[in-house]
Design a protein around this nucleic acid. Sequence first.
RNA 1: GGAGGGGUGGCUGAGUGGUUGAAAGCGGCGGUCUUGAAAACCGUUGAGCGUUUGCGCGUUCCGGGGGUUCGAAUCCCUCCCCCUCCGCCA
Length: 425
Amino acid sequence: MHDINDIRKDPDAFDAGLAKRGVSACANQMLTLDDKRRVAIAEAQDLQTRRNEASKKIGQAKRRDDEVEAQRLMDEVAGLKDDLQKAEEAERMANDKLMEALAALPNLPLEGVPIGEDEEANVEVRSFGTPREGKAEHFEIGETLGMMDFEAAAALSGSRFVVLRDELARLDRALGNFMIDLHINEFDYRETALPVLVRDDAVYGTGQLPKFAEDLFRTENGYWLTPTAEVTLTNLVREQITDAAELPLRFAALTQCFRSEAGAAGRDTRGMIRQHQFTKVELVSIVDADSGEAELERKTQCAEEVLKRLDLPYRGMQLCTGDMGFCARKTYDLEVWLPGQNAYREISSVSYCGDFQGRRMNARFRHEGEKQTQFVHTLNGSGLAVGRTLVAVLENYVNEDGTVTVPEVLRPYMGGAEKIGDAHA
RNA sequence: GGAGGGGUGGCUGAGUGGUUGAAAGCGGCGGUCUUGAAAACCGUUGAGCGUUUGCGCGUUCCGGGGGUUCGAAUCCCUCCCCCUCCGCCA
């Protein structure tokens, strides 16, 4: 959500920012809505003033038992009521219209973000490891092992679900545990266990609503299934004033995520790359207005460290203006090398959102002794998507005989096992 | 699921139709006193929005929304949340 005052201060800069994202200019439209809103407010307030004055006099008349005068005054303001109600309704509508329009606008890219239309214009900022050629895709490896079962999942739930068995199920769990342990032990994140069902306000706060409702699952009694723990972790500070001394707040969670993948029909239909339900370790930071960009770099490094310790080749991409998410001002994607696909695939996305979500959540902070509050700045990032990491491990660690070597850092989480598939080979 | 009790300012807690944005206490801030601090005493202390060069003025807000009324923290409807008892249950 943007501050209408910022738009008023420099409408051209606002439109220029939107243009970078391929969104057409609309500052003028917003200012017109705001003007209408303010006129409506002034009209309603004027009527309210008159009503209040009259009511006060009526009260005074009644106190001195002057019923005649009281009645005279009551007759006098009787006509006001209708106008007042209309004016208040007009004020509400004018305000709603402006809020609705503002809520649909994406955040502005930070200075220096590469300008472009789509992922073609993303910029590689670094890389790690050496990509190798591979022969097998992860689902071939998993099915050969007899531990990855899409048919069983389809029977239960349809497409875009998977059943993992035996050591692969354990590997999945090991990955999640390894990741979250790393972040809480070494990077100062607080582990958090969260609901995966939330209400409208929370999803609105992080920007998935109102625009992207079709990407989410909704229960019959009105809950949303969280598409990422970004929603819950970020909303932890909603509608409150955090003491600035407590910042930065760093939260990590290992949760299930649920996405309808409404717009992805036909894409990544095979395998575990794109599922309706997947596990992810999410990293969220709540910071003050000055720390956002440094925290973005830090968080990206936290995510990268997971890949490094798993010895998975990856590259870091800075997203261009056209490829960034709705709330983001600056985003890095980490893309892991998948030998089976002979391609880099996104495994983490780390974004700095400025105060865009803070304003939507009415989440503020205040420096000790100061009166003025500011909206918190927020960051979120995957550290990492567990399902896709499992895919990467399989394709990068598969052996000639179809077994899969367990990455060293995961062995403590696997009962010491060095290999998957030996017993079944 | 059934029955009941509650949601008031940073906190505790009064307030059931008329200058109530809201008593009192705590906390915070300023001052007096003190070498300094504490204690004591005095004063002060909510937020959003609109308007204004500024002082200010106006308006809204007592969980959210709607309604009754000339006037609502106070009455009505509805939703949300918390608590207690019973039932059920991982």
